Simulated scan of single mutants.
Amino acid sequence: MLIAFNKPFNVLCQFTDRSQPPRATLAGFGLPPGVYAAGRLDYDSEGLLLLTDDGGLAHRLTDPRHKQPKTYWVQVEGDADESKLQQLREGVLLNDGLTLPAQVERLDPAPALWPRDPPVRFRKTVPDAWLAITISEGRNRQVRRMTAAVGLPTLRLVRVAMGPHRLGELQPGQWQRLR
Rank of each mutant, 00 (worst) to 15 (best):
I3T: 02
I3M: 01
F5S: 01
K7T: 01
R18V: 05
S19Y: 00
P21Q: 01
R23H: 10
A24F: 02
T25L: 02
L26T: 09
P32K: 04
A37P: 15
A38E: 04
G39M: 08
D42M: 04
S45C: 08
S45Q: 05
S45R: 05
E46D: 07
L48F: 06
L49Q: 03
L49T: 03
L50T: 12
T52S: 02
D53A: 12
D53N: 15
D53T: 09
G55A: 14
L57M: 14
L61N: 10
P64A: 06
H66S: 00
Q68C: 02
Y72P: 06
Y72M: 05
Y72S: 05
V74T: 14
E77C: 07
G78H: 04
A80H: 06
A80N: 04
S83K: 14
K84V: 00
K84T: 00
L88I: 00
E90A: 14
E90Y: 06
E90T: 05
D96M: 02
T99C: 03
L100K: 14
A102H: 07
Q103V: 13
P111K: 11
A112Q: 15
L113N: 09
L113F: 11
D117C: 04
P118R: 11
P119D: 11
P119Q: 06
P119C: 07
K124A: 13
T125F: 01
P127V: 15
A129T: 07
A132L: 09
A132C: 09
T134M: 01
S136E: 15
E137C: 03
Q142M: 13
Q142H: 11
R144T: 10
R145W: 11
R145G: 11
R145Y: 10
M146R: 05
A148F: 08
V150T: 09
V150N: 12
G151K: 08
L155G: 12
R156F: 09
L157P: 04
V160P: 02
E169G: 05
E169K: 02
G173L: 01
G173Y: 02
G173T: 02
R177N: 00
R179S: 10
R179D: 15
R179Y: 03
